[in-house]
Each structure stands twice: as C-alpha cells, then as structure tokens.
C-alpha cells in the first residue's frame, strides 16, 4: 500500500477521471431525458388547452378574441418547447424525431385553427381541430415509445 508505482497512481487517476466523466455523462443523459419528459408533458397540456378553447368557441361559450389570444400564446409555447425537444441531446434520435414531428404537427394545426378563427371559417377550424386531435395522439404514441423500456 505504501509503495505504489507511479504507473499505478496515474492509472488510478485516469480511473477516477473516467468515473467522473461517466457520472457527468449519466447526469447529463438523465437531465436530458427529464427535460424531454417535462417538455412533452408541457406540449400535451398545451394541446389539450387549445382543444378545450376551440370546443368552448365552437359552443359559443368563449369570445373569438379570447380564443385567438389563447391560440397565439399556446402556439408560442409549442414553438419554444418544440425547439427545446429538437435541440436536446439524446441517445434515442428516432424517438426524438417522432416527438419533434408530433409537436410540429400540433403547431401547424394551431396556426391553421387561428387562421380559421380570424376568418370566421368554422369548417377550417373543425379541420384544424381534427388535425390537433391526430397530432395529440401521435404525441402520446411518440412519448410512450421514447420512454418505453429498451431491451
């Protein structure tokens, strides 16, 4: 114990450095996964908000100005969160791409719904609602695949 060769000391130092790197890598991987989980939930909640607002508008229970403002505000949230999901470093790029696509589809549908509201075009809004529902389902599937246990 008292007589360690310089090689042994160096190799132990490398081992510690490796462990530290591994720990940092694990922490960053963990935080990136947590980040994607959190952002996916934000997107899911935001898309349901849009659907609720559009349902209320269609039933004549919410004014157009309020519904447009809601869609604009939630649209920004979707765009920001989508960008964060896209830029997050992950070990599952395929699943990440599916999530990103679902968020993009949601953003497009929200923009279409907003245009329909501004033009007072009920048909366009209904189409956009349909697309929103489909994109929400796609998001749920992509989320489940991302967090499914891997072999």
């Amino acid at each position: 114990m008292a007589h360690q060769t310089p090689d042994l000391i160096v190799s132990r130092r490398y081992l510690r450095l490796d462990c530290l790197c591994l720990l940092l890598l694990m922490l960053s991987a963990c935080s990136s996964s947590d980040q994607i989980e959190q952002q996916s939930r934000t997107v899911a909640s935001a898309s349901q908000t849009v659907l609720m607002a559009l349902d209320a508008w269609a039933a004549g229970a919410a004014p157009t100005a309020y519904t447009v403002d809601t869609l604009q505000s939630i649209g920004k949230t979707l765009a920001d969160t989508g960008a964060q999901i896209r830029s997050a470093e992950t070990s599952e790029p395929t699943e990440q791409a599916s999530l990103t696509k679902a968020v993009n589809d949601l953003s497009v549908a929200v923009t279409r719904a907003e245009a329909g509201l501004q033009a007072d075009d009920r048909l366009k809004v209904q189409d956009a609602q349909q697309d929103l529902r489909l994109a929400s389902r796609a998001l749920a599937t992509a989320y489940a695949k991302y967090f499914a246990p891997k072999p």
């Binding site: 939930r41 899911a44 909640s45 908000t49 607002a53 505000s73």
Partner: peptide
C-alpha cells in the same frame, strides 16, 4: 388533460 397551468389564458377554461 390540462395538467400544467402556466399561461393565464388557461384559467377561464375552468368555469366555461
């Protein structure tokens, strides 16, 4: 499915 209230536009949806 609205589990995160971080935008004040979401609040009126409670009573509608």
């Amino acid at each position: 499915g609205v589990t995160q209230v971080d935008d004040y536009h979401q609040l009126p949806l409670m009573l509608i």
